[in-house]
Amino acid sequence: MTVSEVSFPNNRYVLLKLTDSQPLPDIRPGQFVEVLVQGSPSTFLRRPISINYVDRENNQLWLLVAMVGEGTKTLGQLSAGDKLNLVFPLGNGFSPVQQTGEEVLLVGGGVGVAPLLEYGKYLKAEGARPSFLLGARTKNDLLLLDLFRSIADVYITTEDASLGEKGFVTHHSILSEKRFDRIAVCGPKPMMVNVAKYAKQNDIPCEVSLENMMACGLGACLCCVEKTVRGNVCVCTEGPVFNINDLTWQI
């Protein structure tokens, strides 16, 4: 694919908008790509990156990348016109709409907010009622807020109270004020575990999107396994999205 636009939501994240001469394939929210990083000698394997947004009108695929290591920092040096080799779409994605008008809370933190944008757009288009609950350390760590707000209500927590309510996502008052039919969460593991606990206590179906370290992304190498009630399964093919009831987390 060809890089058509590069922007930096803040100094630790890059948003890549990619396009192709071919129409994009069918993509389900929550699916991911495996990116070949070129020009970084220490980066040997592809990097799994979740799909942030699919813009059918412009035939664009958006990747929101946290620049944490050599590989992802190299992706931050791309410019418009560069080519990027992707294997996609991979993984199973989030559940489709269960019933019209259902209230779905999408909880995200860090780069975990990325796939929720596409999922929120999809849910709204299919007649569900999504809301976002986004958590961050400070307001500067919140990404793509305008885009999230253009889709649905956005509830925010920050640890320093610089925006929204103070604390972690599980402290937000919306959780006691409103009843949701389903929850989907993607973010740091402690956040996902805490949201999963809340969901379980309140008997709300909940899906989490995991980001175990991967090599192939195709279910061949068996490196990214997660323990489930069915034994060790590949996050790349049986996930990355799992129902919390299938996991062996202590919640």
Binding site: L45, N212, M213, C223, V225, E226
Partner: peptide, 23 residues
């Protein structure tokens, strides 16, 4: 066989380590 616990993979210079364990 269930294989070994996660993490089973580490990227290394021009290669990778795995300890899948014959799952």
């Amino acid at each position: 066989r269930e294989g070994n616990d996660y993490p089973r993979m580490a990227e290394t210079p021009s290669g990778m380590l795995n300890c899948v364990g014959l799952q």
